[in-house]
Nucleic acid binder design. Structure first.
Lengths: 162, 162
DNA sequence: TCAGAGTTGTAATGTTATAACAAGAATTGC
DNA sequence: GCAATTCTTGTTATAACATTACAACTCTGA
């Protein structure tokens, strides 16, 4: 797949995320729980360490030593992590990436710019786009549940490296 | 999958498209050729008839009687049709849909609203969104090649049918 | 301790997509 | 016409991505 350089990356902890800092807020729209399960922690750790998109099967391979044997172990963890807003699925890549946004930013209308040369992904939110899409939905009586916005192209550094 | 009601639908021809009306324009950015091959015609016909998204394997099944035996026959035709701008790939569905726009509208920045209840797809273009995305790309030195915008939710008629 | 809910392990299978290779048509230049 | 080239096709096999089904385990609260 290539190098990946995600904005996220390791910011101190090379291991699993420090998921247990107390606040047990209970608004149920998909926010992170107080505590992740072992498998969820392992999968999230793999994605954080990678700093870029990984496929479920790549994650599986990386977690063999931790006892992972079957795809479903990965997919189940990913499902929850996506639900929690900690991980995003990149539809055009059939891959998953750790969310690079600190706190509870929207999570429903993120956009991703995927470099086809190096595989890096930049995650961003654009209020105008969000507004525009919600506007279309409103005008057309469409009850919006989730939005996928993915840009494919070549990132700045890969263009420079010509 | 369910009913599908694509804006496109049959507008006179129930059969393969009338791909041979003379004009041999030669701007090579992915416009339709003067003539499609047999397989391309069959695949495009299946998508037009369906009036909504089909997976490659569904198309394959529909074309058994026409001599199709292997997925590759479908994928190869789809690849060309997408290149020509006559078909779009829906990433979040792993499916394909005939383009519902008459002529050479952008084709690079279409958006799709997919009803999760009935499977219908509405294709639309929004200049403001396009502008906004190109703006982000410009500001971030990202050379934009292709954009995927897919809305998931419930269409007006499916909401009404509660 | 028991019931229930959620999580896990595992095998099998389903679905989507491509690689590799051989052969068949169409186009071009002569 | 007839090569040479190029594009398209057919076919087999395989890779890559994802889910169903079922049994067992673990945690929590009454």
């Amino acid at each position: 797949m290539a190098e990946h350089s995600h904005d996220h990356a390791a910011s101190g902890h090379d291991d699993a995320p420090d998921h247990d800092h107390g606040h047990d807020h209970t608004h149920d729209h998909g926010s992170a729980p107080a505590k992740l399960t072992r498998n969820q922690t392992l999968v999230y750790g793999a994605l954080s360490r990678a700093g870029g998109p990984l496929t479920a099967y790549t994650i599986l391979d990386q977690l063999r030593d931790d006892g992972f044997r079957a795809p479903l172990q990965v997919y189940r963890a990913l499902e929850k992590l996506v639900e929690f807003g900690m991980v995003h699925r990149l539809e055009s890549l059939n891959a998953f990436v750790a969310c690079s946004h600190p706190q509870c930013v929207d999570h429903e209308t993120m956009a991703f710019a995927i470099c086809e040369a190096c595989g890096s992904v930049s995650e961003f939110a654009d209020a105008a786009i969000t507004r525009q899409l919600k506007g279309w939905a409103g005008n057309n009586g469409f009850a919006l549940a989730k939005t996928t916005i993915e840009l494919r192209g070549t990132c700045r550094s890969c263009q420079a490296a010509v």
